[in-house]
Structures are given as structure tokens and as C-alpha cells.
């Protein structure tokens, strides 16, 4: 099992100038990223949509690397998104999935068939040309730079420790420093979609 914060710290070393959609990793990534205007932490607009959002962004900005930190619960909710991504073959899309085998934000209930799903195999079957699976941080760290040089779409499944939250949502510590609309405004300016 991989610690999510440790994984993101290693990713930061290789991030370059990529646009990062931190998804369920946003809480940790917000304290690790050194170029927040290239991050798109959106919270949870509607579960299962992050992969499609990142696909749209990758197609709109083909000259930029788009890196998504998705979750297995989100992937399961929109498995069909994988075939759309494979259909469009965005060469700049890096789809990392954090598999903690449960719905951590709702108390840790297991996802269906939690311990027996091979997400990398599912992605391979959907048509991703490059897929990887890791359950060890050192193994991932040793391969990450090369993975980020592969031609997308690339799928990376990672077994991560669940960080289960049982506090009611309104009592949880807020990590956001910007509203979602400010986040979008900032990244649009950063990409030159709108002028500053």
C-alpha cells in the first residue's frame, strides 16, 4: 500500500509544467504543489466525472500534459469514460487512479468486489495503450519519470492507504484556499485561454 501524500511528493519532482487535476488527492496536493495556478482542484462536482473533465481538457490543450489523480470509486461510477478516452487517444493524458478499496469520505465502506479488481487490466481492455499497476511506493518512484514520458493516454493504478473520514462534511477541516470558480479563472489565465 502507498501513502498518498508520499506519492504526490514524488510526483511533484517530475511534474514539470503539467496541468494537474488532483481529484481526491487535492487535500494533500494543496500543500505540496509549487505552481497552484496550474492545478485544478474542483472538490467533488459530481462523482465519477473527473476523468471526463480531464479528457475534455486534454483534447482542448493538446500541447500540455494533463495529469489526473482519480479514485477507484469515481472510475467505477463511470467505467464507460475509459472507452471514450481510449477512443480519442489523447497523447497528453496521464490518468492516475488511487485505489483505496473503499469509499473513504463516507466512512470506509468497501467498493464492490474491492479486493479483486484489476483496474489496469480494465483500462488495457478499454484500449489504453500503456497501463501500469503499483502497490509499492519505491517501485512507483523508480518508474514514474519514464511513465510520464510515455505517449498517452497512460493509466496508472496505485493501491493507496485509505484515509477514512467519519466527521460530518461541515465539520471537516477545509483545505481549499480558492473557490472552484477562482481555480478555473486562474488556470484559464495560466493557459492563456483568457487574458489576465
Amino acid at each position: 500500500m502507498i501513502n498518498t501524500a508520499d506519492m504526490l511528493r514524488i510526483f511533484q519532482e517530475y511534474r514539470g509544467d503539467s496541468i494537474v487535476v488532483p481529484g481526491r488527492g487535492s487535500r494533500h496536493w494543496s500543500t505540496i504543489s509549487t505552481i497552484p495556478n496550474r492545478d485544478i482542484p474542483l472538490g467533488d462536482p459530481a462523482m465519477g466525472g473527473h476523468a471526463s473533465f480531464a479528457l475534455g481538457l486534454a483534447l482542448a490543450q493538446p500541447g500540455r500534459k494533463i495529469v489526473l489523480f482519480d479514485s477507484e470509486g469515481d472510475v467505477l461510477m463511470s467505467l464507460g469514460a475509459l472507452v471514450t478516452i481510449a477512443d480519442k487517444q489523447p497523447s497528453n493524458f496521464y490518468h492516475f487512479v488511487m485505489d483505496n478499496e473503499c469509499y473513504a469520505t463516507t466512512g470506509g465502506q468497501p467498493v464492490p468486489n474491492a479486493k479483486n479488481i484489476d483496474y489496469a487490466l480494465i483500462a488495457k481492455g478499454a484500449g489504453y495503450p500503456f497501463t501500469h499497476a503499483f502497490d509499492d511506493l519505491e517501485d512507483l518512484a523508480g518508474n514514474l519519470e519514464a511513465i510520464l514520458q510515455e505517449r498517452g493516454p497512460v493509466f496508472v493504478s496505485m493501491k493507496v492507504h485509505p484515509e477514512i473520514e467519519n466527521e460530518p462534511i461541515h465539520r471537516r477541516e477545509k483545505w481549499q484556499t480558492r473557490t472552484v470558480l477562482e481555480v478555473i479563472q486562474d488556470v484559464k489565465q495560466e493557459m492563456g485561454v483568457i487574458s489576465s
Binding site: 485544478i40 462536482p45 459530481a46 465519477g48 466525472g49 473527473h50 471526463s52 473533465f53 480531464a54 479528457l55 475534455g56 481538457l57 486534454a58 483534447l59 482542448a60 490543450q61 463511470s78 464507460g80 469514460a81 472507452v83 471514450t84 477512443d87 480519442k88 478555473i184 488556470v187 484559464k188 493557459m191 485561454v193
Partner: peptide, 26 residues
């Protein structure tokens, strides 16, 4: 015009949102 085929309509809006943030008009 580029067509993006989805397999469930719920995928369509986040895809369009990503395209829009990236400066396209879906």
C-alpha cells in the same frame, strides 16, 4: 467539428466542462 462519443450521458457535461476550461466551444 470533432465528435466525442460517450457511452452514458452523464459523461457529457464534465467532458464539455473540460473542453470549455481549455478554451474550446463544445
Amino acid at each position: 467539428i470533432a465528435i466525442i462519443p460517450v457511452s452514458r450521458e452523464g459523461q457529457a457535461m464534465p467532458t464539455a466542462a473540460g473542453l470549455t476550461v481549455g478554451g474550446k466551444k463544445p
